[in-house]
Every structure is written in C-alpha cells, then in structure tokens.
Design a protein around this nucleic acid. Structure first.
Lengths: 253, 253
DNA sequence: CAGGGTCGTTGCGATAAGTGCAACGTCCAT
DNA sequence: ATGGACGTTGCACTTATCGCAACGACCCTG
C-alpha cells in the first residue's frame, strides 16, 4: 500500500538470508542505489539493520529485542509456561508450545528435554507446517474455506517417507485430527523423532494454541510416547481452563 | 531519512508495549488516522504486525521469525554453543552468551541451569547494561571516546544496593574489568544472583562477545562461584580460538 | 605509481507517492 | 431510535521520494 515502506520492509527478509552490501540490496529491490541507501539508513536508525565492519548490512539487535517483547506480550505463553515446565518435570521430554498466525505456525515456547539427546528446534522458528503435530491441530480448527485454501497453497516437502505427501492427504489428516482431538507426528519430520500434541482452547472454544511432547526413538518408542497422551491432554486442558478464564489459576506473582 | 519509513518503523516499538488500536497509533505518531491506517496495512502485509480479533494491532509472527533468522546468522553463536553446553554439563549452572551492538547488550544464547531454581532471562532480551558481568566486558573494550559517551548517556537504576550507581563509578569498574580480563556481578542486578564472565575475542583481538555463568546464592555462594572462573576463562578462550580461526575446531560439517 | 574499476555517497530537479480532509459505513451503547 | 466512536474510502494538494549523474574513496592490477 505504501511503496516506500513496502520496499524498506522487503529488505528485512532479504537480509535474513545473510549479510548483503548496498548494490545487492538495490538490485534485489529493483531500485537505484541511492534509494536503497536511504531505506537502509532509515532501517539502521531504528536499529533494525546493522552495518558490520565490512560495510555490509545485516539484521540488527533491536529486531531481536522487539521480537522478544512481542513474545512476552502473548499472554497465552505466560499462562502456559508453568504447566509446560511441570509436564517436562514429570516426563523429561521436550515440550513445545505453538501458535498459528497468517499461514505460519510458530513455536513460542519450549522446555528442553532432560535427556542428553536434544532435538533441534528453536523458539520463534516456523514449524514444518505439513507434518508437525501442533500444526495439524492448529490448522484442523480453521474454518473450512481457509483450511482448504491454505492446504492448496502449501508445499509438501518429503522430509521422510512418512511425511504428508499432498494437499488431499493433508486435509484428510486434518479431518482425523479434528475428530480425535489430538495429533501425532510419528517420524514425519525427522525419521527418529515422534511427537504427541493436544490443543489449547480459548473462551470461544477455538483452538488458540497447541502443545506437544517430543522424543527421539532412542529414548522412547512411539508406543511409549503415546501412553503420555492422557497427561498431555490434561495439561492442555488445564491451560485452556486458565486461558479462557474458567479456572482462576492458583498462583503466582 | 525517509519520513514514511521512519513513521512506519516507529510503530513497532510502540506496539511492543502492547496492542493498540488505530486511533492510539495515529495519535502517538502525530499523523492522521488514514495515514496510520496505510502504514499499518503495509506492516501487516509483511507480517510484522497482526490484527487480533478485537481489531487492535500487535506485533506479528514474522517479526519473531525474522529475529530468529537474524540470530542464526550470527556465526559466533554457532561456534560458541557446544562450548556453552559442555560448560553447563560440567558445572550445572546457567550459561549465557551476549554481544554488544549500538548501545545495547543482548543475550544471544543461553543454556539453562540444571538446578531446579532457574533465573529469569531470555534470549534476545536486552541485558541490564550497567551491572551485568557480560555487559561490563563488552563495554570495557570499546574505544575510550565511545565508552565515555555511552556511560554518560546511560541510566543507572539501583536494582540493589550493589548496583553501579553512576557514570564515574561505572567507568572505574570498566577500567578494572579491562585490566583483569574478566568480570563479575555479585548481586548487582538481583540481590541473590551472582555471575562470573569472560570475554571472547575475534581475530583482531577485540572483544566480540562475552559469556557468563550465573547462579543464585541458594545454590552456591559467591566465593564458590568464583572458583569456576578459570574454567569459564578457558572455555571463552577456546571459543575465541575457534572464532578467530586459530583453532580449526575438531568438529562438524 | 598511474590507471581502471568498484562501491558508497551527495545534491538536485521532475514527478510520483504520501498526506490530511471530509464524508461514509458499521457497530455498539444509551 | 439516536448518538457517538472507530475504521475505512476517494480525492485534491503538495510534499517527500526517486533516479540521475557526478564525486570521492578505496582496492587491485599492470
């Protein structure tokens, strides 16, 4: 809508790929160098980009700090965290919390496994949307139109032989998840990693977030992990209760 | 430099304080509502702001994802992480990695304590710059002019009785840290928490990052924590060696 | 050491893009 | 039913942005 701002913001994902110099930025934006310079300067003043010693630009520290504040403002995160920590205490595995927003599913909290083998994932990282258990729960709750439209738009990378291969398969899987009220990912993202997930609902009954427990085969088999399902669901329900204002929450400050 | 972009970017910190509606944004920017609307729309298209169900705007998911990518591009983080994890294995306490950029010190990595008592801090969060041990190391290495200028600009909040109270005191502390080559924070930020920190240097000898070990009094006394200093310094030196390209690093892909 | 090339930077005039206004629509509360 | 608050739209004005061309710094090469 606003050309100047639009161009300036387009620089950010570009720099997210790695540092770039003025010429590269100008080329990729399709504008004159002087224009790119002015945009970069403005971004720089706001701390969103940083100019490193070799004169190239990269994303800046304030961007990271802003994102941090953004996450801290998500009240569901505050509410859920103690529950996630408690679940991690009792089962020892990695626990994730994720939300859906504008065609993306994002981890917004994580409690690391207490086993030495840790899986790779990061708060703030977009989730493998076609296979992750939390993603299935979040998408399964979208209105049908939106769900179908999104499913068509997605790519279906074959991370493993068990990855969801196509839009129809994905929609069927979502339907199943929707009915059973929980989801699993058994080696669909990484061969040896399984997850079970449960939905967290707001006052309106819609799925506001999803949480999961993940563990590699070398620690527990898929079947063993599935025995945790009731515990995961209970935890998710407890969070739902607090988040929707039904349960007053017996803590804190 | 670019008015439109400048205004648009000013919206981000504003929304970081919490969700706001169109009128509030327009007022705080000092522009007409229609102008604010267009800016917000552009930000929205790029996913940097999100419009929640009550129509108010808040920071969006892509901002968080971008920040994530920004951090993953910091090569020092990649290099340091295994060392931090190993240090955590051997001492059990919380380990932090921080960098300085444009008047801010930011945690860019963290390995949580294995004790039940965990301290509050977050990757991406700006550090209490006048008291944190890592901040002292990073600022102590700045050119004198810059260091003085920054010291004058800072606020000196008295978190505790031991917090650095003023610019002159801070500069003296930095001088000391500079000479001894390590830093500590003994209850200067939170009464019961102590840290020891060591610098990580690049090929040019300048301090590129700093790492610290933190623990609450209830787990170890300050004196006990200080006995870890040699280990912390050795770890930092190992990271320095790898980062500056001296040590080839015996790993990875 | 001179010359050619690359890259970042600056000032300027043309004009395209952004701005504020006023009117409209919607929703909610009175 | 009526008033007010808030978001949204189209439009005329004019200001802020754009690309250009020229400059300067730097680096590498012959």
């Amino acid at each position: 809508m606003s050309q100047t701002v639009d161009r300036a913001l387009s620089i950010l994902p570009l720099l997210a790929e790695g540092p770039a110099d003025l010429g590269q930025v100008a080329d990729r934006l399709g504008v004159h160098k002087s224009t790119a310079l002015r945009l970069l300067r403005t971004l720089h003043e706001h701390g969103l980009v940083y100019r490193q010693s070799d004169q190239r630009y990269r994303l800046g520290a304030r961007l990271i700090a802003l994102a941090q504040e953004a996450m801290e403002n998500l009240d569901i995160r505050e509410i859920a965290h103690p529950h996630l920590a408690r679940l991690n205490e009792s089962c020892g595995h990695t626990v994730h919390l994720a939300v859906y927003e504008e065609n993306e599913v994002l981890y917004i909290d994580k409690v690391d496994s207490r086993y030495p083998v840790r899986m790779y994932s990061r708060i703030g990282k977009p989730v493998a949307i076609t296979v992750a258990a939390v993603a299935k729960l979040l998408l399964a709750d979208l209105p049908e139109r939106e769900r179908r439209a999104l499913a068509e738009k997605l790519d279906y990378p074959l991370y493993t032989a068990r990855s969801t291969p196509s839009a129809p398969a994905f929609l069927r899987e979502l339907e199943k998840v929707r009915e059973q009220g929980w989801a699993a990912d058994l080696g669909g993202h990484e061969e040896s990693i399984n997850c079970v997930a449960a939905p967290i609902r707001g006052a309106d009954g819609r799925v506001a977030a999803a949480m999961s427990v993940s563990a590699p085969n070398v620690v527990v088999t898929a079947d063993e992990l599935l025995t945790l399902l009731p515990l995961v669901c209970r935890t998710a329900d407890a969070i739902s209760g607090e988040y929707s204002g039904r349960t007053p929450a017996k803590d804190i400050v």
